[in-house]
Design a protein around this nucleic acid. Structure first.
Lengths: 186, 186
DNA sequence: TGCTCCATGTAACACGTTACATGATTGC
DNA sequence: GCAATCATGTAACGTGTTACATGGAGCA
């Protein structure tokens, strides 16, 4: 149950509307905690009910329903309470590894195309993260605690993409070398 | 919707009962696709309904309800169909990175204890994977396509644990160095 | 006027988790 | 005989996904 706390964190960094929150989520938190805009609106409603946040019409709302949300003291202490209790370890769901396992015993399936598509995406993401790193965390800037921690979060993403790329390349090599081996099902 | 296909794969490797499947899941597939035994039983029921698998009383059932499941031709072609269609990229959910982000702007929270607990677990898992690697994939053995692919799946786990450990150690160092910095909320 | 986009939702459903139920077997 | 364990479930609920609805704004 981490989504509300992710939203609290994001709103503490800066109060904003639901759609802005969804957009900021998509740009940064998304790669380690995905949420759709429907989920975010539902959770914002619950959190306002619970008294963790409050909302008012957004400055640029005009006659629309746009609202800005900000964290209340109750929400802040709820976040602190949640941080203090241990969280489950990171959960990974990788359908491709299921495919690899199936491909080990099945004939007639070629995973190289999908692997190459994945490589393109991983390389693009890595390049993107490196850009952010060069822009926001150049040596001279990364001195405050806040900046160094945010840099570490980015580094986790970089580490993950680098690992994915190295693995995909090695996997492609293995598939190529063993392409003509006999594969039979007993 | 990858769980049924993970189960099909596992059952193609070896037909067995629901509980055996759950146990084998827990030992190998679990780290990249977790499923509880309740989920597995529900899915086995659906798959039998769909005609992908069939079951008969297990040889060692005695008077119990224990049943063995095996994959039918329909299930095998469903698996092939699924492998051919592109799967979504691996999905990671890491609550600790949310905490890190919150800790960057909040005072009064210490993540070092939790990080150290994580390190213990990651190191144990890495040691366990390395044991399996030494036992099952020693140089001379890893020659068949099947064996090399299964080795690559294990290597993904090893890569992941190594990355987690390196990151956690660096993060601990950052938290230590910046422990007495001022943290204020604007 | 009609078309598209923006921002906020609703409804229905599939997936995943938690707690508990059942009947058989095993060990003391 | 009794408790613990094994194997298979059921029920209730919470989370996440998909498809669609609404009403205003911007533009031709």
């Amino acid at each position: 149950m981490s989504l509300p706390h992710a939203l609290l964190t994001s709103l503490m960094e800066r109060s904003c509307s639901g759609i802005d929150l969804a957009r900021r989520f998509g740009k940064s938190i998304d790669y380690f905690w995905h949420a759709s805009h429907q989920q975010i609106y539902r959770e914002l409603g619950r959190m306002e009910q619970a008294g963790w946040i409050e909302s008012c019409p957004a400055p640029d709302a005009g006659r629309t329903r746009k609202r800005d949300y900000r964290v209340l003291a109750t929400g802040r202490s709820e976040l602190l309470r949640w941080i203090a209790e241990p969280a489950p370890l990171a959960d990974v769901r990788d359908a491709f590894l299921i495919k690899a396992r199936a491909a080990a015993i099945l004939d007639d399936c070629d995973l190289t195309v999908e692997l190459q598509d994945q490589l393109v995406i991983h390389r693009a993401r890595l390049a993107h993260y490196r850009e952010i790193e060069a822009r926001d965390f150049a040596a001279a800037k990364g001195r405050t605690r806040d900046s160094r921690i945010r840099h570490m979060i980015l580094k986790k993403g970089i580490l993950y993409e680098e690992g994915s790329i190295r693995w995909a390349e090695e996997m492609l090599a293995v598939l190529k070398e063993t392409a003509d081996d006999d594969v039979t099902i007993k």
